[in-house]
Amino acid sequence: MQTTLSRRRTRLGAYLRANWLYYALSVPGLVYVIGYKLLPLVGLQLAFKDFSIFAGDNILESMFVSPWVGMQHFEKIFGSADFWRLLRNTLTISLMKLVVLFPIPILVALMLNEVRCRPFQRVTQTLIYMPHFISWVVIHGIFLTMLSANGILNRVLEALDLGKTSFYTDPIAFRWLLVFTEGWKESGWGAIVYLAALTGIDQELYEAAYVDGAGRLRRIWHVTLPGIAPVISLMLLLRLGGILEAGYGQILIMYNPTVYSTADVLQTYIYRTGLGKLDFSSATALGLFESLVGFVLIVSCNGVSRKAFGRSLW
């Protein structure tokens, strides 16, 4: 008994002596995450309380002395007549963006990787990431001018006898407009992480494939894609966590009352109806709901990925 314990202890000692660096390096990150991210989670209790900011002598005390109300705020959100419409819209828009937009940065990165003219590659790379720096307010302004009833696009459509489309007021066209503008803004930016991943692929693998007589597309398929697969699966996993967010910042700026039926998502609804404005509790409840869904999705997809592909985030 004693010997096993002491042997275990010496083994632990040896392990620590060999790997002390890992623990030392982890300290700053952990201190930050615990202090700045986990400690403030005491605020989540607001989702189950009738919070009044002035209930106590100071705001922290107010948080604790406000009365518990159970699931009342969740019932208010889920019980709303609009809830299912909002959830449907949120998921539809999120999935449209995911399916259409997720592959684009990968494609762009692969295309850039195939360019052999270095200056052209660099210039293009810089150009396509520029839209990321324009805020949604400004992007909305630019697209609105182009796509309005008498905007340039409709004039072209008219000239081609294709008929006008009111992109901003047609409930279906508007969803695609959301997808398109987001793709335009973020695709080039999204490609950067894949470009970085591409630099890590061992060049010898390419040479080996070339010797085997593999063509360009085959090399991409057999060498490049597997090489960046870990980053691709990571990106996909991280995207899933925000599935209920649906990019509401963009929607809030771009939508209008004529497309509420298809473009109103959970967060925009909460924002517009003022439910979350002063009612910190409802806003917290909605946030908690979104977090939970995201967390469950990430954890289960990670599990599936580990079982199916032997690759996982943790």
Binding site: G29, V33, L39, L44, G241, F280, G287, S291, V299, L313
Partner: peptide, 14 residues
């Protein structure tokens, strides 16, 4: 811990 803290947010007040 990192995944958890990425998804859950204690809110602006805290």
């Amino acid at each position: 811990l990192y995944v958890f803290s990425m998804l859950f947010y204690g809110g602006m007040i805290s």
